[in-house]
Amino acid sequence: MNIELVLFGVFAVMTLLSAGLVITARSPINSAMALVSTFFFLAGIYVLLWAHTVAVIQVLVYAGAIMVLFLFVIMLLNLGDAPHRGKPTVTRLLGGASAAGLLAVLAVTLGRMDAQPARLDAQGQATFGTLAAIGQSIFTTWLLPFEAVSLLLLVAMVGAVVVAKSRI
């Protein structure tokens, strides 16, 4: 039992717990706060995966900027607590059953996986996950998806303005 495994256990359990709280909390503010903690613990898992840059961006962008937007929206819409859940209907039971089925399939599948993770060599440890390495691969090898993402951002911006414009 090494320290990485202990840390992974802590982060994983806490991620799942706070993610569960996001969907069960009845007050939107509590949901949003639980989401912040999900993001933080997920960032911890990224660090364990040797992806420091992604972890930092996760905290800066998601736990920071995006959450502020969430809270603004909740404040502006003046949301109250969600009403009590209704009775279980056939659709809800079916949805729950298929979700549970998918969870079971995934649990069995992933449980059968080889438990030996790939290890980085010394060279890999020096460069993997650094900002320089990520930057280099984004602008060279991954040029096509990178350009497509820039198109995606433009489309999303134009689309958001079109949907939010005064009524036509």
Binding site: L152, V155, V158, G159, V162, V163, I168
Partner: peptide, 10 residues
């Protein structure tokens, strides 16, 4: 995303 926005255009 382009078609979502177009769907809600009017």
């Amino acid at each position: 995303i382009a078609t979502y926005a177009l769907t809600a255009y009017l």
